[in-house]
């Protein structure tokens, strides 16, 4: 038997009553710790349930009396709560890592994957063999894997952290080459004084192009087209 029990009810009184029934002991024989006081909410909607932690009052505790009881309950509460939060976090990073390792090994690429986590995203770095087969043309294979892992982890509709996949430092290299491309096409647009169209790209890549040229007063960037065909047009500013 667990040495304590967590009970939820509409009110604290109800929770205590329930605890007495569970242990089949009167209130005096139980140590009750209040975790959260219930609140009525609005017409019963949005109401928060009262939560208590109940344990059988042992004889030792009875003798040491109320002295020990208070600090014990306070200090006991904090580590339990934080550990719960961490568990969920570790879980998602670990789950995503296991998932991508599983897919990779079935693809015939049993590469190790390391985790780097921030508040907004989880970065999974695949230690590739340098062949680039996992990256694909224009990063399409890596993006496809990233898409599948994100979809699979978000299928419950819960708001979760974004998963970013990387291998052989591809993401950084890609960003650099996109910035170079943006500047080159920007110069071309200014030279020929006509709009220049960039090949269709995904949202992430388009964002890099927009950001690379946003401080250039002589150019304006726009997006045109739908879905996979959406592309950027770099337009020279009329006044420039």
């Amino acid at each position: 038997m667990k040495d304590f029990m967590e009970i939820e009810a509409k009110t604290i009184d109800e929770a205590i009553e329930k605890a007495c029934r569970e242990y089949a002991l009167p209130r005096e024989k139980l140590n009750i710790e209040i975790i959260s006081e219930g609140s009525g909410g609005f017409l019963g909607i949005l109401s928060k349930r009262a939560k208590i932690r109940a344990s059988v009052l042992s004889i030792d505790m009875d003798i040491s009396g109320p002295f020990h009881e208070m600090p014990r309950s306070v200090s006991k509460d904090i580590p339990v709560e934080t550990q719960d939060v961490n568990d969920i976090d570790i879980d998602m990073a670990e789950t995503s890592r296991k998932m991508i390792e599983g897919i990779l090994s079935r693809m015939g690429f049993p590469f190790p994957v390391s985790i780097k986590e921030s508040d907004e995203y989880i970065l999974l770095n695949i230690k590739g063999d340098g062949s680039g087969i996992l990256i694909g043309k224009g990063g399409q294979t890596l993006d496809a894997l990233q898409y599948i892992v994100n979809k699979a982890l978000n299928k419950n509709g819960k708001e979760r952290k974004r998963i970013i996949l990387d291998t052989e430092n591809y993401r950084e290299k890609r960003e650099k080459s996109l910035v170079t491309l943006a500047r080159k096409l920007g110069e071309k647009a200014k030279r020929i004084k006509k709009p220049v169209t960039v090949n269709p790209m995904n949202a992430h890549d388009r964002r890099i192009i927009h950001l690379a040229l946003q401080n250039d007063k002589e150019l304006v960037t726009k997006s045109k087209g739908e879905g996979a065909f959406r592309k950027i047009i770099i337009v020279p500013n009329k006044k420039g």
């Binding site: 693809m107 996992l134 694909g136 496809a144 979809k151 879905g227």
Partner: peptide, 17 residues
């Protein structure tokens, strides 16, 4: 998936293999 994006991604992965 939206506009067939998910099945497209699966096909891309299969083609890589």
């Amino acid at each position: 998936g939206k506009r067939g994006q998910t099945v497209k991604s699966i096909r891309t992965i299969l083609n890589a293999v």
